[in-house]
Amino acid sequence: MSARPQTSAELGQSRRSRRVHTVLATGVAVGALVLVAGCKPVAGKPAPNPPIVTTTTTVPPAPTEAPPSTETPTSAPPTSASSTQQSASSTIKPTATKPTAQQPPAPGGPPANGSAPQPGQVGFRGDRAALKVVDGPGSAPPGTTWNSGALRFGGGNVTLDGVYVKGGIEYNGKGTLTIRNSVIEGNHNSWAPLLGNSGHIDVRDTTITYKDDQWPGKEWGNGAIHGDATVTVIRCDISGTPDGIQNGPGNSTIEQNYIHDMLRAGTYPNNTHNDGIQSYGGPNTVIRYNRIDISADGKAYDGTHQNAAVFIMTSDGSPTSGLQIVGNYLAGGGYIVRIGASARGAIMTDNKFGTTAGGFGEFTVDDGATFTSWNNNVSSANKQLNQPK
């Protein structure tokens, strides 16, 4: 990977390469495709070249290659369900006999409607001991398979409520995967904690993270929620991966989430390019009332790792319509917000930006992007930010 701005041809190639749902003949080929998906270009108008990191520069501890493990599969995890996998039943609730116990709410209670959350106000906020643990074939719910550390679904509509999945979840169906009041902890045997290759992912009040010291691959750059499913993500706590959410087809709603503590690893030019949300330019993407903070050490940009809190890429051959970025707290990135040239009639209102220390500014907008509304976007110093011309 490289931190340099890419040409329009390279951006187009990256967009085509990232589709992780394509079924290839071998596991190795699939793994290579997913790694390309995680290797993101730096979009937006050209910015100053990032500084060369000297040998004395330190970054938070993280491996640049996966350490040895007795559990590493001989080939990359496939991105489609195996032929022996059952079709998921219409509803799966592993915790029917074990209700979720709620802990006292975080200070101030849950976030009010129409406001960005504070840390601790979203995600799973109950008693983890009351959750149904899913960590192997013996605990996998009916209609699913457990394959090398990932819980896999095919078929149609599926509901998971009150589960603690100690591994990734991969959905390959054409219906809706609904997740409520749960914890998902990805590991090195799954390419993302929550991978949606198709259909619709609707996840709420859930904590999604990655805590494994080993990676799926040395160029891993995926999101905690990743892939070509449309997504509805509400009141979730998301952390621990190179990106927070990578979304392909648009028609998605991302609301009142806390996205933070992205994995920063590697040294220039082979380093993560962190994004809070990376959208590939589909229509009707709504990003509202989130707290997205990928800053570190008091800086928006550490000189190497952060790309943007919100990164809307230019789509291939068609406008990006219906984009809304409303009421968020946004921090971290060389530019905190990057909007591609294909955006048409975007709405960007009532957003508060964090510090730009170490970076280039609050936002960069490619020539050609247009807005129907730009109001009350303010800097960390409460200064009104003018709409780009």
Rank of each mutant, 00 (worst) to 15 (best):
N172A: 08
F153P: 06
Q103H: 08
W191G: 02
W146Q: 06
T159D: 12
G162K: 11
H200Y: 11
D367Q: 09
H273Q: 10
C236N: 13
G138N: 15
G317V: 03
D366A: 13
N222A: 14
I347P: 00
N172W: 02
I277M: 04
V34E: 11
I52G: 04
N113G: 09
I179C: 05
I312E: 11
P41T: 04
P117F: 07
R4H: 10
Q121K: 00
D261N: 14
S17P: 00
T7P: 02
P67G: 06
L330C: 05
L330H: 06
N271K: 14
T100Y: 08
G244L: 08
V20P: 01
S8D: 15
G317W: 05
T207V: 05
I52C: 01
A308K: 02
V28C: 03
S148D: 15
K389Q: 15
I169G: 09
N375A: 15
K211H: 12
T159S: 14
R180N: 13
P216M: 09
G227Q: 04
G199H: 00
N377T: 06
T72D: 09
L11H: 13
C236V: 10
T209H: 15
W215A: 06
S239G: 07
G359F: 07
S75C: 06
N113P: 12
A346I: 12
T320Y: 02
T26N: 11
H188I: 05
T91I: 13
P193M: 07
S69C: 04
Y171P: 05
G156K: 15
V233S: 02
I179E: 09
S380R: 07
T304S: 14
P67Y: 12
E10W: 00
S379K: 10
Y210Q: 09
D205P: 02
A76P: 07
A369S: 11
I208L: 11
E10N: 00
W215P: 02
R152C: 02
V122D: 01
P137E: 15
N290G: 05
Y268W: 03
T58W: 04
R125F: 05
R344G: 03
N375F: 10
M313G: 12
K299E: 12
Q13A: 13
G120C: 08
S318V: 12
D350Q: 13
P137H: 11
I184A: 01
R18S: 10
G38L: 02
A62V: 06
N187F: 09
P319F: 03
S315F: 01
H226Y: 12
F353Y: 14
Y164A: 13
A96R: 06
I92D: 00
V231T: 11
R235D: 07
H260W: 13
R125V: 05
E65M: 07
G322W: 04
F311H: 15
Q121I: 00
N49A: 15
G281C: 03
